[in-house]
Design a protein around this nucleic acid. Structure first.
Lengths: 229, 229
DNA sequence: CGTCCGTTTGATCTGTGTCAATCGCTGTGG
DNA sequence: CCACAGCGATTGACACAGATCAAACGGACG
């Protein structure tokens, strides 16, 4: 599928694409393909050879790893502007599944390398984005390693809210397109404990919600400090 | 302190420095300083402004974060060849402490940016190394999120052994310069549980040791599969 | 109207944290 | 040279947080 064009792309300002001047976007468009992914579909399987990289332009994906005995870890969620391809491995280390309907730009790995040679700023931009992702991933280590269930949930909600805010959302509000099971597997908990943590945060007045997928962060400061931020 | 020279540097082949041709190392040496850090000393504090980047040339450091109530997380260990400075934040997000006596090369952040402009291969090398670090950090997420104590320990030992092997160590052997407390705070466990996991792995025959700091990985394959690798 | 799926809530069980004691090595001072 | 203090590691007893098992609820959809 050909590419729709960078001009109207809502993800562009957040993505590595922004490192290439607007005047040169036709070079990008020439190399890029486009992928539409319906809810639940998988973009790539753990173990597949890694031949492409992607930028998410719409929707949300999850990065999943499964153990032989069925234990599941959701290593992260990807949103518009996020880059898929910061890895040194020749094979995918996670399965990538669409949490919602998604749209992505695809680049063959070799085209991306070519583009980096041609636009050194693109490589700088990628390094910068890889560094941010490292910061974020190291933050998750603290969540998983040393925080209790409600604290983990607080940290997760705050981080998601901030990412959604950068994409035009309200500061004190989070949308949760993923299920409780996804959240549990992301936070190293069970569905039940996640649910209990939601009600505990609600009873404490830190959050409020009718719809379990649309959360108001009433006491943002309290949530941040609970998560050690 | 001036720089000793890249020629004899044992860390060079493992570090980002390898991206700069041997013929140009005098440019590196001109920008670099050298730091000696005795055991227990701290290189930088969480929250300090981040003005330099480092390459570890000798010894081991730990990357620590502390919560107000005293909970501690060791986000990782740094060894010869590892780069300190993959972060988008203007301040350190972790305290860096010497586990053993250490030696490091220092570069002012601005010199590093200058070097990247001058040697595009350096920037590529940094991106590649940042990607490996992302792979490794995402691996830790699985350890912390979904594995039991003995599995976490197994994964930790295997990963350390591999890193030491790349630096000339034996495949089936690990040296642990850090204390059980460091390991516990790295794996999200208590000292006691770490100790019990060591004896459990020993009783199962997977590892063997007299000295608690020098471990033989007797059943490397079993350890790898326990860790989900 | 009934089924299905995601979420919430309740009851019980278990693994890991907590508290406490012991071991063994190292280094120090009598 | 030996006694002892101090620290890291190990082992044991117990408690409790979170997992597991089980049930009920509510909205979406046929």
């Amino acid at each position: 599928m050909p590419h729709e064009g960078c001009d109207g792309c809502l993800a562009r300002p957040l993505a590595i694409c922004a490192s290439i001047p607007a005047s040169d976007t036709q070079v990008l468009e020439a190399e890029a393909g486009e992928v539409l992914l319906p809810t639940g579909a998988t973009l790539a399987h753990e173990g597949d050879p890694r031949r492409e990289v992607y930028t998410v332009t719409r929707g949300m994906l999850r990065r999943v790893r499964l153990l032989p005995d069925g234990r599941r870890l959701v290593a992260g969620f990807l949103m518009a502007g996020d880059f898929i391809g910061f890895s040194g491995a020749p094979h995918y280390r996670h399965t990538l599944e669409a949490v919602t309907d998604c749209m992505l730009c695809v680049f063959p790995l070799r085209s991306m390398r070519e583009l980096c040679r041609r636009f050194p700023d693109l490589e700088s931009g990628m390094l910068a984005q890889a560094c941010s992702e490292l910061d974020a991933t190291r933050g998750s280590l603290m969540l998983l390693g040393r925080l209790g269930p409600s604290e983990r949930l607080a940290g997760f909600l705050v981080e998601l809210a901030e990412r959604q805010q950068r994409r035009g959302g309200a500061a004190h509000h989070v949308d949760l397109p993923m299920t409780r099971a996804d959240i549990a597997d992301h936070l190293g908990l069970t569905i039940e404990t996640v649910s209990r943590s939601f009600t505990k945060l609600r009873q404490s007045g830190a959050i409020a919600f009718e719809d379990p997928r649309r959360i108001d962060l009433v006491e943002l400061a309290a949530l941040r400090s609970a998560a050690g931020l």
